[in-house]
């Protein structure tokens, strides 16, 4: 049965590695729902957060293939319940609509805030699950959304010793010569 899985991988920060990782999905005809790549607290190490809709067996195999890449340090997979995850969404709405008194209510309800005000529009930011940012989109739609953008997922596992604890045990040098 298909489910939503979050795959996390730590890698060296090398050119082309993103391509090597995405090829693994392409080859198996798995669509990547969202992808976030960012630097970690450890210099030179990057974190990939990949969300896919797939079957568990497929996900396990894909994670093994990712971990097999010579420049990937570790890869893991999680179900939604095993992680805390968020996406950020930005909404641009016309300044006239922003004066509407209902907007304040909406922002409070969603814990969203205005991050920028220009002469003719304001930009609202919201953080949450896709469901939340989508719901806010529907509510803001009548205000007239000029532009909407959503980030990929970032996620942190609910395990006590998370994958990133492992980073602390890593050698500082990428490689050692004889």
């Amino acid at each position: 049965m298909k489910d939503t899985y979050t795959i996390t991988a730590f890698s060296e920060n090398h050119i082309g590695l993103l391509n090597r990782i995405t090829i693994i999905f392409t080859r198996r005809h798995i669509n990547i729902e969202s992808l976030t790549v960012s630097s970690t607290e450890m210099k030179g190490i990057h974190r990939f957060t990949i969300v896919v809709e797939a079957e568990e067996e497929q996900v396990v195999k894909v994670v093994n293939q990712i971990e097999k890449l010579t420049e990937v340090l570790r890869a893991e997979w999680y179900l939604n319940d095993d992680t805390v995850y968020r996406e950020i969404a930005l909404y641009k709405i016309p300044i006239d609509s922003a004066i509407d008194k209902n907007l304040e209510l909406v922002l409070r309800e969603f814990n969203a805030h205005i991050v920028d005000i220009q002469n003719d529009f304001v930009i609202i930011e919201n953080t949450g699950h896709v469901d939340d940012t989508e719901k806010l989109y529907d509510i803001l739609n009548p205000f007239g959304i000029l532009q909407f953008v959503r980030s990929g997922r970032i996620s942190i596992s609910k395990q006590k010793k998370e994958l990133s604890a492992y980073l602390n045990e890593l050698p500082l040098n990428e490689y050692v010569k004889e």
Partner: peptide, 10 residues
């Protein structure tokens, strides 16, 4: 030239 002894990601 020095041969490689270990690589942390591998």
């Amino acid at each position: 030239y020095k041969k490689i002894k270990s690589i942390r990601s591998y």
